[in-house]
Design a protein around this nucleic acid. Structure first.
Lengths: 138, 138
DNA sequence: TCTTGACTTGGATTCTGTCCATCGTAGGAT
DNA sequence: ATCCTACGATGGACAGAATCCAAGTCAAGA
């Protein structure tokens, strides 16, 4: 993740202790935290960091393309730091567990021009749903 | 939509005037309404129907598989009564407009067994994003 | 018609996220 | 090393969406 901080600095991102902590919290594989969860973990390292700051930092990381917003249910958005590799998500309907998955093919190609209705199509989000091994046994 | 009411009655759905109105509102071309829009239209027919009841009825129709919830980022969930025909959605990032689209192929087949991590995969949701012609011009 | 459990109501509450005026500070300039 | 200042942080108010709850109402079977 220090790669990330390095990249951000090069792009003129002012590095504050708060932003550093948010970036550190998002480090790791298969991390899909909500903004509130990010805030909770950030508070452990920097007790006075505010929720607004976490929202700001997350929003900036998203616009910089370093983090992807994922809304898997109608609830809170989740933030996925694994933005450098194209992937989709597999969500357990039982416990909400999220796994990154890598389908074959490009789903954008599945939408013929005749089905685009003049839209400028810029992206597609694919979410597979099912039961994880633990929930399937239960 | 009387088909729907028939099916629901057979499945033991207690038919109240409120539920009937919600089902009727979802009928027709004006698909993809938010819960509040459904409530607004329901009030025209049944002035004292409450929001809670609309939320309850919508939630039940969703669990019965008669209506599909479409969550577009950050905005209110929308309810799509066109659940009997397989389709996906194309959402305008500008104004939130939703179109039903019919991609080629089955996205479930795009997820190889090796990428399922033991999950019992039961479905997949595909949402295309872009700008509608009006927002693209603006 | 009667009964009863399921349904409805509407106000309070929770959850998620944004806004804003004010204060603080990172990092370039000196 | 110190100063400046524009950008970032703060936290409480605010707003939209959805849920909860206790009390009242009613659909449908007996």
């Amino acid at each position: 993740m220090s790669d990330l901080l390095e990249r951000l600095r090069e792009r003129g991102w002012r590095l504050t202790s708060q932003r550093r902590v948010v970036a550190e919290v998002l480090d790791g594989d298969h991390v899909h935290l909500t903004a509130d969860e990010v805030h909770a973990r950030a508070v452990e390292r920097l007790p006075e960091i505010s929720r607004a700051t976490v929202y700001n930092a997350l929003g900036e990381l998203v616009s910089l393309g370093e983090v992807v917003e994922v809304s898997t249910d109608g609830r809170a958005k989740r933030y996925d730091p694994n933005a450098h590799r194209q992937h989709e998500h597999l969500v357990c309907s039982g416990c909400g567990l999220i796994r990154d998955v890598h389908p074959t093919g490009d789903p954008l190609e599945q939408l013929p021009a005749g089905e685009r209705f003049g839209f400028t199509v810029s992206g597609v989000q694919v979410t597979y749903r099912g039961l994880c091994p633990a929930c399937a046994r239960g």
